[in-house]
Design a protein around this nucleic acid. Structure first.
Length: 419
RNA sequence: GUGGGUGUAGCUCAGCUGGCUAGAGCGCAGGAUUGUGGCUCCUGAGGCCGUGGGUUCAAGUCCCAUCACCCACCCCA
């Protein structure tokens, strides 16, 4: 019986893996310029971490986690997102003892048990950043701009940036009350899910796709009218900094995030044309999270970008990405004696830093040159028993077709990278 | 979890209302004066027609089930 990869997972094969490497390198390069350092945390954590961090009533925790019991009887969960684990690591390793703010990034797989569809998989990859130890609005702006710049540097232009502030627990207390009161008046007109959302987390109703177009929602009280003085000022300053940077954004007062830990600034970057899953990068501030999972009160902010969605977008926008790895030389050999000499040459050339390939199927010269052509090498070095007898080899320029003889001992002095 | 669509060579697909040794293009391998690629031409390999049942003289083609993939809902990156 044939075994397939589990549902919702993907093999990342060459040459696609080259594109992955490329977007990861871009991320690392950007991170260096903004002074973010990489952190690698476990792929699985104790289930409790996500329950407390992400929120018991979120869909992610309620029905999308890969949870199992290990041999000691503890409940383990494959991480569905990156932030909770990193906050845990920050607290556990007492990183607040280091110079603050601490700016971290990560790239790796996440797991959610969901029905796969366009831009959504059960194992997917995120590139994300987290900044701890500062509530400076300038950092909110930096993180947003960072996300935007990453996408821009990859060559994406048609992005929609949405921001909002969902305040702190203090401002939300009154807002929740009023919002519940408001929605309760129209309870019967809302969808079933929303009716239960009213009691559990009324802000979710605002985000409901089913009731989205209804007036009830557009006329609902706005969080922005409830922000306390501090939160108002924080949001105002974030917007100021974004304006200074010349960033175009839309304020969406109805934008809430599906993870409970967000406070104050939240944002999303979307690309229309991706299908239903059009958010490629999103994040926000989470000043209460560290405390929520049992640590000190530490402000934090971050974002995560979905790599699969990013690649999909780059594809749709027809952005040029590396298609194949470039080889410098293909070593063509004819005859057993020449082969022996060529094997030696092969390693010498590689040690000098050239990208070199040769034939391992005992093919004729014709086929070997064909292979060289398909590998798009710049040069072929032809070494047959005849040449060997004369202490020579042939260097063939595959672009021009020109070829010349060269003494064997001179080969390593040649520059095969020249145009 | 719910709905719709699709499943035929490595890839993209064609196979009308059930009937012959299941096809094409691309790709792959080999060849076209015996040591020279890209173009062209020739030849070849490769398919239990997703899987399991059923209807029928006969099923890739109809029915049922199952699995997978795609898309959407939901949710999120």
């Amino acid at each position: 019986m044939k075994i397939n990869a589990p549902r919702g997972t993907n093999d990342i094969l060459p040459p696609l893996s080259l594109k992955w490497q490329y977007i990861e390198e871009k991320a690392r390069d950007l991170m260096a310029r903004y002074n973010y350092q990489e952190i690698r945390t476990p792929i699985f954590e104790y289930t409790e971490l996500f329950q407390r961090g992400i929120g018991e009533t979120t869909d992610v925790v309620e029905k999308e986690m890969y949870t199992f019991t290990d041999k000691s009887g503890r409940s383990i969960t494959l991480r569905p997102e990156g932030t909770a684990g990193i906050v845990r690591a920050y607290l556990e390793n007492k990183l607040y003892g280091q110079m603050q703010p601490l700016k971290l990034y990560y790239i790796g797989p996440m797991f959610r048990y969901e029905r796969p569809q366009a831009g959504r998989f059960r194992q997917f990859h995120q590139f994300g950043v987290e900044v701890f130890g500062s509530n400076d609005p300038a950092l909110d702006a930096e993180v947003i701009v960072l996300g935007v710049n990453y996408l821009k540097e990859l060559g994406l232009e048609n992005l929609d940036i949405y921001i909002n502030s969902i305040g702190c627990p203090d401002c939300r207390k009154e807002y929740f009350k009023d919002l519940q009161e408001y929605f309760n008046q129209y309870r019967q007109e809302l969808c079933e899910d929303c009716q239960s959302r009213i009691d559990r987390n009324p802000m979710r109703v605002l985000d409901c796709k089913v009731d989205n177009s209804k007036e009830i929602i557009s006329n609902a009280p706005s969080i922005l009218d409830y922000l306390c003085a501090d939160c108002q000022e924080h949001f105002a300053r974030v917007k100021d900094y974004l304006s200074v940077l010349g960033l175009d954004y839309t304020i969406d007062a109805r934008m809430v995030r599906g993870l409970d830990y967000y406070t104050n600034t939240v944002f999303e970057i979307k690309y229309s044309g991706l299908g239903a899953q059009d958010t490629i990068l999103a994040g926000g501030r989470y000043n209460g999270l560290a405390e929520e999972i049992g640590g000190k009160s530490i402000p934090g902010i971050g974002f995560a970008a979905g790599m699969e969605r990013l690649l999909l977008t780059l594809e749709k926008e027809k952005v040029d990405l590396p298609e194949s790895s470039e080889l410098d030389i293909y070593l063509v050999t004819i005859g057993e004696e020449a082969r022996k000499e060529a094997i030696k040459l092969l390693y010498q050339l590689r040690n000098k830093g050239y990208r070199v390939e040769t034939d391992y199927l005992e093919r004729g010269m014709k086929s070997q040159l064909k292979a060289a052509d398909r590998l798009m090498v710049k040069y072929a070095i032809i070494l047959g028993d005849d040449e060997l007898a004369q202490g020579k080899a042939i260097i063939k320029n595959m672009q021009t077709g020109e070829q010349e003889e060269i003494a064997l001992e001179k080969i390593l002095e040649e520059d095969f990278r020249k145009e």
